[in-house]
Simulated assay, not measured.
Amino acid sequence: MTYDLLIGDRSYSSWSLRGWLLFAAFDLPVRVELNEMYLDSFHERLKAWAPARTVPAARASDGALWTDSLAIAEGLAERHPDAGHWPADPRARALARSITAEMHSGFTALRGTCTMNLRVKWEGFTPDEAIQQDLERLEVLWSAARAMAGKGPWLFGAYSAADAFYAPVAMRIAGYDLPVSDLGRAYVDAHLAHAPLRAWRAEGEAQDRTIPSYEMGLPTSPFPIG
């Protein structure tokens, strides 16, 4: 079985990062096609991936097509049950699916205001009350996962699809220097050190494309991934 994956710009597309990590972090080979965002060609290129309207979209060599990152996670877990997308323990697996689905549909204040930008770190950003509430909810979910899974740098011990979905959140926390607990900071640091994520960012830097709509108008410093 072979796969193709359509992504947006690596420096900015948080959903594309999730989709790509579902392959890269689980040693599943995939051919990647870049569809640069905010260009006239973006929707034209999507026609070959119909009915997809957004990125990421993934296609298997047998014709199966997933047009959403959560669908990609479940499709790959179904086809590769030994890859480890979900925890083996049923209780941990239920919680992992639950917090992944909440990430997929929630945290609108954090995601809407603090757009992912892997090119810079913003200095002087002050989170409002809605963002603070999202950060507090993150701490609740991350603590629940760790309490069930025990030791390990990731939410459920070994890296899972839940970590792939929370990777862009960790990048937001790092890029906007958002306040989190020591536990939260350690989790963010694990993502910053994660080899697949570092490779993803390096490819985005090599593309060297800045999208003006992602600019915050704040002072910047280098993104803290090294």
Rank of each mutant, 00 (worst) to 15 (best):
I72F: 06
I72P: 04
A73I: 09
E74T: 08
G75C: 00
A77V: 00
E78S: 02
R79P: 03
R79Q: 12
D82Y: 03
A83G: 09
A83I: 13
G84D: 07
W86Y: 11
P87Q: 01
P87E: 02
A88Q: 04
A88I: 05
A88M: 00
D89H: 02
D89W: 00
D89E: 00
D89P: 00
P90C: 04
P90D: 02
A92T: 00
R93N: 13
A94N: 08
L95D: 02
A96H: 13
R97M: 11
S98C: 12
S98Y: 13
I99W: 05
T100K: 12
T100E: 09
A101T: 12
E102V: 13
H104K: 10
H104A: 11
S105H: 11
G106S: 14
G106C: 13
G106P: 10
T108A: 15
A109V: 12
G112Q: 08
C114A: 14
T115I: 12
M116E: 01
M116P: 00
M116S: 06
K121Y: 04
E123F: 06
G124M: 05
F125I: 09
T126A: 14
P127L: 01
D128V: 04
E129P: 02
E129F: 01
I131E: 07
Q132I: 04
Q132G: 15
Q132R: 14
Q133K: 15
E136W: 00
E136L: 07
E136M: 03
R137V: 01
L138E: 05
L138C: 13
E139W: 01
V140R: 14
V140N: 07
W142S: 08
W142F: 14
W142Q: 10
S143A: 15
A145S: 15
A147H: 07
A147E: 15
A147Y: 07
M148Y: 02
A149W: 03
G150N: 12
G150W: 02
G150V: 07
K151I: 00
K151D: 13
P153F: 05
W154I: 08
W154T: 08
W154Q: 11
L155Y: 09
L155A: 13
F156L: 06
G157D: 03
G157Y: 02
G157C: 03
G157A: 06
G157E: 02
A161W: 08
D163Q: 10
F165V: 05
A167E: 08
V169F: 13
